[in-house]
């Protein structure tokens, strides 16, 4: 066991998978000699060289288009999009091509690859270094969407994603890239894609969350405990395919649900969670579902601290579901 940051966890996952499989290549902007703007690809260029750690021209569509071609041919590319806010030029390649290649060729052509990209606010990044784009991708059949919240999961999920036969959008919560650190085994392990984790057991209400909202949910539950309410924190980890069983099991147990996400509320991923519970478990609910989310506005710079869901806002929602 070593105590490392999520950046290091990502870096070690890439390094270990590249050592284990010559077909794994990394490509993107500044990923080579510079080791990535967040240092996720640090030292990889020195170890694996120009052909496997590739600084590309500045074109997201080109990066993903090239990676698709590489994956079709038999490599396992792990392209990096420097900030998820810059992923849109590649949206066509991801949604029209990457997601549909297996389907439209009836499995003759596949693109096993992982698109890594840091997402989310809380780093004073303004409109274009802060957004949470997960719902755009979870709306696209054919993609797997993964969001780790701890160094342990980041390493285990990234390794599982690189070994997966399906294309994975791997959203890294950059707000918690460097803190807190976490214990990560040095040996070969993976975390299963498609499985949620209960981070805190409770009997009174459920908070669903993922990525950088997991610590916020935990903090809110501490506050709730002061009032004698025991919250359960369900960290989804994989958004698509969703661990629906874990979701329904937790809500069935607690009877109350707070949905937490930092992306805008309207048509956000949390809305789907709410709909699933409403369709399949409405009879267990003792209060209306509450969503705590970013506001339906572009991500702000100065007032970021107001925009980002924090423990007090979550606590407000907990109050509402508990006193309904």
């Amino acid at each position: 066991m070593t105590e490392i940051t999520m950046v290091q966890a990502v870096n070690h996952a890439l390094r270990d998978e590249m050592r284990a499989d010559d077909d794994v290549v990394v490509l993107g902007e500044d990923v080579g000699v510079n080791g990535g703007v967040f240092r996720c690809t640090a030292d990889l260029h020195a170890e694996f060289g120009d052909d496997r750690v590739i600084d590309t021209p500045l074109s997201e569509s080109g990066i993903i288009g090239a990676a698709i071609g590489m994956a079709l041919y038999g490599l396992r590319p792990v392209p990096e999009i420097q900030f998820s806010d810059f992923i849109w030029p590649a949206f066509d390649q991801i949604t029209s091509e990457l997601a549909k290649m297996r389907y439209r060729s009836a499995g003759q052509f596949t693109c096993p690859m992982v698109v890594r990209t840091p997402y989310g606010g809380g780093i004073r990044g303004g409109h274009y270094h802060s957004q949470s784009p997960e719902a755009y991708f979870t709306h696209t059949p054919g993609l797997v969407v993964v969001v780790p919240s701890t160094p342990y999961d980041a390493k285990g999920l990234l390794r599982a994603a690189i070994r997966s036969e399906d294309p994975v959008i791997f959203l890294e919560p950059k707000r918690i890239y460097r803190a807190p650190k976490g214990e990560v085994p040095d040996d070969d392990y993976t975390v299963e894609i498609g499985k949620a984790a209960v981070r805190r057991e409770g009997t009174d209400f459920t908070i669903t969350c993922y990525g950088a909202m997991m610590p916020v949910a935990m903090e809110a539950c501490e506050k709730a405990a002061e009032k004698g309410w025991q919250g359960e924190v369900l960290d989804l980890r994989t958004l698509l395919p969703l661990d629906e069983e874990a979701l329904l099991a937790s809500v069935t147990k607690t009877g109350r649900m707070v949905v937490l996400q930092e992306a805008p509320r309207f048509c956000g991923f949390g809305s789907e969670l709410s709909a699933i519970v409403a369709e399949k478990a409405v009879d267990v609910l003792e209060a209306p579902i509450k969503r705590v989310a970013g506001f339906d506005v572009p991500f702000p710079y100065t007032l970021e601290h107001v925009y980002m869901p924090h423990a007090d806002r979550v606590m407000h929602a907990i109050d509402e579901v508990m006193t309904y």
Partner: peptide
């Protein structure tokens, strides 16, 4: 770019 990527691979 896919054709280019396959050739690159």
């Amino acid at each position: 770019p896919q054709a280019m990527g396959a050739a690159w691979a």
